[in-house]
Amino acid sequence: MRISKLAAVTAAVLTIPLAACGAGDSGSGGGGAAAGEYPSEPLDWTIAFGPGGGNDIMARTIVDILQQEELYPENIEVQNREGGSGATGWGYLLGQAGSGYGISTTSGSFITTPLQADTGWQPTDFTPVGLFATDDALILVPGDSPIQSWEDWVAAAQADRLVVGGIGTVNVDFIVSSLLAEQSGYEVEYVPFNEEGQLQTSLLSGAVDAMVSNPGSILGQVEAGEMRPLITTADERLDVLPDVPTTEELGFENIPSMPRGMILPPDAPAEAQEWWIETMQQVVETEQWQSYIEDNYLTEDLRWGEDFRTYLTDTQEQFRTILEEQGAL
């Protein structure tokens, strides 16, 4: 009897180490500015979104390159700090102000989240390293749609009440859809979705007439003939979709794309900022980075340091104006 009780207690106690190992690696601070050479401490790398998403993939690709090329001499601790559309992760980076050992990558939410919530920070508060690429948008219709080209679409949208689906409300998808409608002179109903999967089935099921998406997540559907892209916001035609015109060709102006860049905490030491600009200039030259850009169908767009900050200021101003006009803010 006593033995069986002992065994039972042991079994229960076994669950405690499980708990401990789950919590073991919660973040350790980035530390203040160190004396001497810049990279002399472990790097605390924040990914403001969950694993598997676009931001996560880019961050892990960069970390992989840094380690393969032995560019960062110390340990790199990567942590997904997701929540609040990036507010949690970038808020954590805000708390590391003054340090050169916190770092994060950006996406569209880096600009839009502070517009809709009191995050306590603005994109321009952070020390900019650089913009590396933009994730372009595509407008797609179902593969069996009678709409063959952008002109067909504009004509159809002017004649009937059409519905466009996209991810989120205060987001790049909505802004792209609104700007295209405004500049072409048609009105369209935008329906926000939370998940890419539900958005895609909505288009396939004929519930929405068109959708906004990124090449990386939708190209499989295009290759299979299930969806037909009408236009891309990329600066130049995409190699994989040579027949799809760009917004610029068709005379649209200031159509934004999702910025993929890198930031340090606010007021990071100048030497840290310089070190990262130089290092990332090496990283974007590597073969692995180039194949990442290709595989995810991103458009390379390099802007370093203050140029990136200017870009952020301009883009946010543009977003704010459009969103206010559309009544979303």
Binding site: G83, G84, S85, A87, D118, T119
Partner: peptide
Amino acid sequence: FGSTELIN
């Protein structure tokens, strides 16, 4: 109530 953690 202004909390960023409750946005989602």
